[in-house]
Design a protein around this nucleic acid. Structure first.
Lengths: 209, 190
DNA sequence: AATTTACTTTCCAAAGC
DNA sequence: GCTTTAAAAAGTAAATT
């Protein structure tokens, strides 16, 4: 009947409005983060899939969009920290993190698919710090040794990469301050210092004074 | 067969729901509870703390309670009896024994070996590992229902179990999975 | 820079919004 | 969903000294 038809119209109206809002929010985040088009498209695909599976229930569209952006970055190996996304989202980092873990669980985004090699973070941070190829290679070498010695489990990848770049900079004569590397990695100086100490100690690195 | 001889579990917290089968006037109850807090605007129950046994109780007007922070089931029984004695002085009548249901037990423990959590996350199905947000692997056991947090040190936290037996069973299942995917013989192949 | 305090994760019930 | 309560793990963060 007419009423049923109207309610159907209303439902699809709401769904379309929500989707339009979600995609505009995605556009806003993607342009501010200067994300490649394929990442934005993947985030949109993840969002539609999340809607189709009813994963939005109880969550805000903004939180889920931010989570999809983060997931798309991880899947496509485009390094972006959760903090960078949280900075420009109206939703806080904690809520984005929750939504991210929730959609990851239900869209079968396994740790394997989401794994981003430290190398990718090295290049991103090194770009922002203006560090040479030589420093990057040294940092990666340090990170590989640290992994082999079991120093990386449970630690913040961003903190580890920041410390490795700090050390590599010192070793290759392209010093950046702890403050500078901490800033691009979005961790505190204390974290950089703690990782730095442990890496220098356990890998027997000789830092030129 | 999974070797559990090196595995340790320790009770850290027990949560129980209790029904006293008596309606309570919280305005009266608040006067006989020394270290308690009651703001019906923010939370409908009285928050009360006992030193002996060391627990926290949430007291509701329906006569139902939530007891948390206990290290043993006996602590919960003692706390409930202590509260009942206090309530009797305020005129509350008890016609039957309280019903106590253990809802959740939290354990800390040790598996006795270290783990490469990247390797664990790569092969162990149905687990979560986001080192940027939390340093442990999160593993959910369906039956008995429980969640285990596994750290690189081999230390664990098991929550959601309703009994010590269930917690051991959940840990046993995690170990079986770890063994099945070749994650037990760590040391050499890091 | 060391200490202390605090927050992240997991679990669960209660009554009501 | 949220509110409150407890507790541990290990990492990170923030506030004091």
């Amino acid at each position: 009947r007419l009423r049923k038809w109207q309610s159907r119209l209303r439902v699809s109206d709401a769904a379309e409005r929500n989707l339009a809002f979600a995609l505009s929010e995605l556009d806003r985040i993607a342009s501010q983060l200067k994300l490649p088009r394929h990442v934005e498209e993947e985030a949109a695909r993840l969002y539609r899939e999340a809607v189709r599976k009813g994963l939005i229930r109880g969550r805000s569209i903004e939180a889920v969009i931010a989570a999809c952006v983060y997931a798309a970055c991880r899947l496509l190996k485009v390094p972006r920290t959760l903090d960078e996304i949280a900075d420009i989202s109206r939703v806080d980092k904690k809520e984005i993190g929750r939504s991210f873990r929730f959609i990851a669980r239900h869209l079968n985004l396994t740790p394997k698919k989401l794994f981003v090699k430290p190398t990718d973070y090295v290049n991103k941070f090194a770009d922002e710090l203006g560090l040479s190829e030589k420093v990057r290679r040294r940092a990666i070498q340090i990170l590989e040794e640290a992994y082999e010695k079991g120093l990386t489990s449970g630690k913040s990848p961003a903190g580890l990469v920041a410390a490795a770049l700090y050390i590599a900079g010192l070793l290759e004569g392209e010093k950046r301050t702890q403050r500078e590397v901490a800033e691009v990695a979005r961790v505190t100086e204390v974290t950089v210092r703690n990782r730095y100490k442990e890496l220098v100690d356990k890998l027997n690195l000789k830092i030129p004074l | 067969m999974v070797d559990m001889s090196n595995v340790k579990l320790r009770i850290e917290n027990i949560v129980a729901s209790v029904d006293l089968f008596t309606e309570l006037n919280l305005e009266k109850v608040i006067e006989i509870c020394p270290n308690s807090k009651y703001n019906p605007e923010e939370f409908p129950g009285i928050i009360c703390r006992f030193d002996e046994p060391k627990v926290a109780l949430l007291i509701f007007s329906s006569g139902k309670l939530v007891v948390t922070g206990a290290k043993s089931v006996e602590d919960i029984e003692r706390a409930v009896n202590k509260l009942i004695q206090m309530l009797k002085k305020i005129g509350a009548k008890f016609h039957r024994a309280p019903q106590i249901d253990i809802q959740n037990m939290v354990f800390s423990g040790d598996i006795g070996m270290e783990f490469n959590l990247d390797a664990v996350a790569l092969s162990l199905p149905n687990c979560e590992y986001e080192p940027e947000q939390f340093p442990g692997v999160i593993y959910r056991v369906k039956e008995p229902r429980a969640v285990i947090l596994l750290f690189s040190s081999g230390k664990i936290v098991c929550s959601g179990a309703k009994s010590e037996h269930d917690a051991w069973e959940a840990v046993r299942k995690l170990l079986r999975e770890l063994e099945k995917y070749g994650l037990i013989e760590e040391e050499e192949e890091w």
